[in-house]
Write a protein that binds this DNA or RNA. Structure first.
Lengths: 157, 157
DNA sequence: GCTACCCTACTCGGATATGGAATGTCCGAGTATGCTCGG
DNA sequence: CCGAGCATACTCGGACATTCCATATCCGAGTAGGGTAGC
């Protein structure tokens, strides 16, 4: 899994903490976490395309959550960055055997493919259970200092 | 996820079908599925190192299951080929912030890392529930022709 | 003093390099088989 | 005829290319804000 996922989730949590409607400066955020600014920006673009974030150009511009944090799950972010396709793709090598049995859809009938789909489904469900709002709340409850530090840093010019 | 996983699981199922103690020729198996022989061999080597397969050199050599098929899970194969490390690695970017709070282990306390671990655990448990023996049995029940075709092909010189 | 215009600075957006891992290929090490030669 | 030794063919094992994607970077497009000039 790409590194950008961790960055993106942290960033979304921070955006959940900032007042709604107020964009967060991408470069400033990268500076805060010591991340490559341009690359973080690139990841945000994927999130915009996926409908997780919205972007504001120009001075005082930046990124902000496109939906309420309760309606954004970790799965949304992961899928936006890693792509919608499941990790395991059945190449249907059963279709390569000599004189293959006529079969419309190997991926549907193949038991291996089914096993992989089941596992991926469990994985996605676990990620879909965690919303940005939930993570933000728990984090604030357990590490209240982090929130004020971020907000202070982003507010400071 | 690498392509080799699908090949390896199919191959292990076939090895579960062949008489115990009798090695399966890697090149012949690759020919059957129209796979690059040397590369399939390379994947098998990883499985040998992981203790899933055993190898026999020389004429009439090949690979065979190192344990009874009931004791080999799909997870064993995936971990052998993809590595033991979880897909998500917490880089603890919280430790990069200015004046970070003293914390021994970010990965343990970070909620994002916990979420990812939970999801990966669910994924692994789903894969660990499926044994090679189980897949082999179900496959034989639903597609009995496949088994005889494989065994015939491997038996033929 | 007020308003309309322009100019500048700032930020996102996509096109462009780079590195490392997954993929694919090749030749050497080791072994069982079958043949040969001697007893 | 029988057995030991040897040559051979076959298979695994790891070292060596190649391709592709994640990573990283840069410059152009568009916009908000402020400054300026005219009324």
């Amino acid at each position: 899994m790409g590194r950008g996922v961790e960055w993106a989730v942290h960033s979304c949590v921070n955006m959940a903490w900032t007042p709604p409607g107020e964009p967060v400066n991408s470069a400033r955020l990268a500076e805060f976490y010591k991340l490559p600014a341009a690359y973080l920006n690139k990841q945000f673009q994927s999130l915009v395309r996926a409908g997780v974030l919205e972007s504001v150009s120009g001075p005082h511009g930046g990124f902000l959550l496109a939906r309420r944090p309760e309606n954004i799950t970790v799965l949304d972010i992961v899928l936006a960055l890693e792509g919608q396709d499941p990790a395991f793709r059945c190449e249907a090598i059963l279709g390569n055997v000599p004189e293959p049995v006529r079969q419309e859809n190997f991926a549907r009938t193949c038991l291996i493919s089914q096993t992989m789909r089941q596992a991926e489904l469990a994985w996605r469900q676990a990620l879909a259970r965690q919303s940005i709002a939930g993570i933000a709340d728990s984090m604030e409850r357990r590490f209240p200092a982090d929130k004020v530090k971020v907000l202070d840093y982003l507010a400071a010019e």
